[in-house]
């Protein structure tokens, strides 16, 4: 994929859009867009506010927990589905259902079961991220070249050794691709979870800003979230690129 590659001249067009945004804001053309410079000024305000620090900590806390659980559970589930045919037949359908279902509709249920706090956000992040990780891990495990497995068997490797020394590594590119998608989905989960819970973290900040008609602050906070999402996506992409050298050799 070239889109996560370093095509700096292309990303430069974002500057054009920011200038356009500034002009639209200055001329009051669209109510939605206050001048970009005002948003940047508000950015300082937002970052320095006390509630922001707590919002960041709760966001990172829920995100890390939710994503961590999703990775552990998702990879395990994927391995199970990839290696045990019966499990695959029973579970595959549900993994696919949750993958294309509107998960935000499930958040009210999660709220009832886990309360109006961080646990709900953690579960939301988990639900958003886990299925794609499981599915990609499964695909990776299923696509391990048969010759590699035969090689291991011919050298007398046990099933356990084969799993740890061959399958896990051979499936790594797919697992990492799944985790990258999970990371991006998880950010959406952490935002949607907090928006719906609305009394903690970023959700509480959004509520405050919209009650007080602070458009610039609203945008500033949104930009921070966008930057966060793009940064974690980029970090995983970098990690993936380091794995690419042998993934490329495999195809």
């Amino acid at each position: 994929m070239t889109i996560y590659g370093y095509r700096i001249p292309m990303m430069a067009s974002l500057i054009v859009w920011c200038i356009l945004w500034e002009i639209v804001g200055r001329l009051d053309l669209l109510l939605l867009f206050p001048p970009f410079s005002d948003v940047l000024v508000a950015l300082g305000d937002v970052v320095n506010s006390r509630s922001f620090a707590s919002a960041v900590s709760i966001t990172l806390y829920s995100y890390a927990w939710g994503l961590g659980l999703a990775i552990v559970f998702g990879v395990a589930l994927g391995f199970l589905m990839g290696t045990v045919p019966v499990a695959d037949r029973l579970l595959n359908m549900w993994v696919n259902v949750f993958l294309s279902a509107p998960l935000s509709a499930l958040v009210p249920v999660i709220m009832i079961l886990f309360g109006m706090g961080a646990p709900t956000v953690i579960v939301t992040v988990f639900m958003f991220a886990v299925w794609i990780i499981a599915l990609d891990t499964r695909a990776g495990v299923l696509h391990v070249p048969a010759s590699l497995l035969e090689m291991a068997r011919s050298f007398g490797a046990s099933r356990w050794t084969t799993t740890w020394k061959i399958v896990l590594w051979a499936a790594m590119p797919e697992i990492l691709a799944g985790i990258r998608l999970g990371v991006i989905r998880g950010v959406k989960g952490v935002v949607i979870g907090q928006l719906l819970v609305s009394i903690i973290g970023v959700g509480a900040l959004f509520t405050t800003y919209s009650n007080n008609f602070l458009m610039e602050h609203f945008w500033a906070l949104t930009l921070i979230l966008f930057a966060f999402a793009l940064t974690v996506g980029q970090l995983i992409a970098l990690l993936e690129a380091r794995i690419d050298y042998y993934a490329g050799a495999r195809s």
Binding site: V191, I192, F226
Partner: peptide, 14 residues
């Protein structure tokens, strides 16, 4: 890549 849902309250606002 971004959580576009964050913009929904903003859109309502406007």
């Amino acid at each position: 890549a971004a959580p576009m849902a964050a913009l929904i309250p903003l859109v309502t606002f406007v």
